[in-house]
Design a protein around this nucleic acid. Sequence first.
DNA 1: TTGCATAAATACTAAGCAGTATCTTTTATG
DNA 2: CATAAAAGATACTGCTTAGTATTTATGCAA
Lengths: 196, 196
Amino acid sequence: MKKAEATRLMILQKAFELIYVKGYQTTSIDDIIATTKVTKGAFYYHFKTKDEMGLSIINEILKPILASSFIEPLQNEKNPLEAIYNLMDNLLMKNEFLKVEYGCPASNFTQEMTPWNLEFNKALNELTQEWTNAITATIERGKKSDTIRKDVNAKQVTIFVMSGYWGIRNLGKLENSKKVYVSYLKQLKIYLDSLK
Amino acid sequence: MKKAEATRLMILQKAFELIYVKGYQTTSIDDIIATTKVTKGAFYYHFKTKDEMGLSIINEILKPILASSFIEPLQNEKNPLEAIYNLMDNLLMKNEFLKVEYGCPASNFTQEMTPWNLEFNKALNELTQEWTNAITATIERGKKSDTIRKDVNAKQVTIFVMSGYWGIRNLGKLENSKKVYVSYLKQLKIYLDSLK
DNA sequence: TTGCATAAATACTAAGCAGTATCTTTTATG
DNA sequence: CATAAAAGATACTGCTTAGTATTTATGCAA
């Protein structure tokens, strides 16, 4: 029971890294069993299909990453606007797992799987919704504590900020350079300051 | 010479539409010859490989679209900030070819082909660079005509605006709704106004 | 009309793909 | 230690893929 759970998680982890680099469609099960050194029998013991594995990656790998790296940091800072800026700065410039040349895993997944796979779409939507809610809540906190103007539309700002993040990840991927991240962050700061 | 050129273009056009909907990897040559009703012999007469066709799509289909729908509109309006806003509004809300559920073709291509295909990356980079230059030039025009503050960093603003566009296309794809476009556009307007 | 390059049709190949059937090993429990 | 279930190994299947080899039709210059 214990060791099996470990292999399952190891498969998910390694498969996730492969998919992050190569994309879901182009990562074959043979690729996965080659890098995990797990046999096909073992793979199909743990997962009925490739898509079941893909969904497990979203729910068991991506969700915890979202919680720890995308949501928690927002809740541990006092100043809401600083919290949002620092989150982005950390994700783009300091996070060691997310690489500029591979973009954002959730964004990649979305681009690749949506709209032709409904189950993936649903799982990714939930993921995004969680992040959206966390950012919106942070802005509302700012409005309550008077660090953000009352007339600011929290939901709209969230969408604007999130779209910028996804877009700059894609742009960084294209240019293979963090330079664009720096520009983005500077303008993000200016934009966020305008909400005070 | 004439009819052959026509079939070639027809293949590119139909293949582009298929790829826009399904993605490059998952669009097979058999898919393409089925929908174009062109035989494999004809296809491989016009294109040495699938990737050569893909590059031709970028250069012969995407580039003209970029010029006519993404760049020209910027040059035909007097007020630079309005030009940028109206461009985005048109692309997101009014353009009949670009569908919310399929996102932005260039962004999709970038996400899917970069970083593992250098030639695609180069072609897409040129494409993006052209758009970047056009937006930056528009902002500089605004600075000269005093409709935009002199201390505004044109390049930075361009990157910020472009990343927002790409991101919101991806978000729209995920939610399969133009609602997010409306939110994005409202905040874009506020942001652009802050540059006056 | 003949000759020849351009253009297109047909049938094939070799490799890769997700998934399965069947067997063997490991592990937990009485 | 016996045994049954859990976990993993191996070999295979049927199908799809990009690309090729070869043949056939078309259009145009002489």
